[in-house]
Simulated assay, not measured.
Amino acid sequence: MKRIAISELEGATLNRAVLIAIGGELDEDLSHSGMVFGTWDDLANSERFDPGSDWSQCGPLIERYRLSIGLDSDENMRVQWVAAADEVRPFYMGDSLLTAACRAIVAAHNPSGYVDVPLGLVEGE
Rank of each mutant, 00 (worst) to 15 (best):
G24E: 07
L119F: 02
D27C: 10
A85I: 01
L71R: 11
H109R: 15
L30D: 09
G70L: 03
R103G: 00
N15W: 00
I20V: 14
G11N: 11
F91G: 06
P51M: 00
S96A: 04
S56K: 13
I20M: 04
A17V: 01
N76M: 09
D54W: 08
H32M: 11
I105H: 05
R16K: 11
D42I: 11
C102T: 05
P111H: 07
V82I: 15
S96P: 00
A85N: 01
E8F: 08
E75G: 12
S33N: 15
S73G: 06
D27G: 02
T13Q: 15
R89D: 12
A104T: 00
E75T: 06
G34E: 09
I6R: 02
F91A: 13
W55E: 14
G24P: 07
M93T: 12
S7M: 04
R16C: 08
L19C: 07
L14I: 02
L30C: 07
S96M: 02
S96W: 00
D74N: 14
E47A: 14
M35E: 14
D54Y: 08
F37E: 02
E125V: 15
L26I: 10
G52H: 04
G52M: 03
Q57V: 13
L19H: 09
G52I: 02
V88E: 12
V122S: 10
L14R: 01
P118R: 07
H32C: 10
A17G: 03
D41T: 09
V82D: 03
L43T: 11
L14T: 06
D54Q: 14
Y65F: 13
S7E: 13
L9N: 05
A104G: 01
F91H: 13
A44W: 12
D74R: 11
E87P: 06
M93W: 04
S112G: 15
M35V: 05
V36H: 00
I6W: 04
M93K: 10
P90D: 07
Q57W: 06
P90K: 06
